Simulated assay, not measured.
Amino acid sequence: MKYTTEVTVDLPRDEFIKKLDDPENMKHWQKGLVGYEQLSVKPGLEGAQMSLTYKMGKRDLQMVETIIKRNLPEELHTIYDAKGVHNIQKNYFHEVDGQTKWVSECEFQFSGLGMKVMGFLMPGAFKKQSLTYMQDFKAFAEKGISVLDT
């Protein structure tokens, strides 16, 4: 399953990247994030990995993020691996008139019958979640609104 989402954030690209690239800020725009742990000696570089833990309703979700391309401020590509799900995310950042247009191309690959069925029956839920994270980042970056306050 593939889809693209985008949002325009009213910040210059350098400020946008500074906020996006700080893992301490993730808790302010990724609802459900319980914690993260750097798994690499040199975090943030290509090949670096980070473990992420989320609380989604009653279930806990563990995933590992791997940076596969880091060409900031233009692009950042990552892979997210969780049980039954492999997500390739290619993020592009375009500065337009002092604002930043964030375009995210997502590809989900499912393994296991349960995840394949969920991906087939509910593809809109994945896109909606991706867009929600992007809109929550926009609110945090522009206005300092944190998902922790809601």
Rank of each mutant, 00 (worst) to 15 (best):
M1T: 13
K2G: 14
Y3K: 02
V9L: 04
P12Q: 03
P12D: 06
E15I: 09
F16G: 00
I17Y: 07
L20Y: 09
E24L: 09
M26V: 03
K27Q: 10
K27N: 04
K27F: 12
K31W: 15
G32E: 14
L33V: 03
G35A: 12
E37V: 15
L45Y: 04
M50Q: 14
S51V: 04
S51N: 05
L52H: 10
K58R: 09
R59K: 11
D60L: 07
D60Y: 04
Q62C: 01
M63E: 14
E65F: 06
I67S: 07
N71H: 02
E74K: 11
E75S: 13
L76H: 07
H77K: 01
N87V: 15
Y92F: 07
Y92N: 12
F93D: 00
F93H: 07
T100P: 02
E107V: 11
E107I: 01
S111I: 00
G114V: 00
G114Q: 10
M118C: 01
G119P: 06
G124L: 05
F126I: 14
F126N: 06
Q129S: 15
Q129D: 15
Q129Y: 14
Y133F: 15
M134L: 15
M134E: 14
F137Q: 13
F140P: 03
K143G: 06
V147H: 11
L148C: 09
D149N: 10
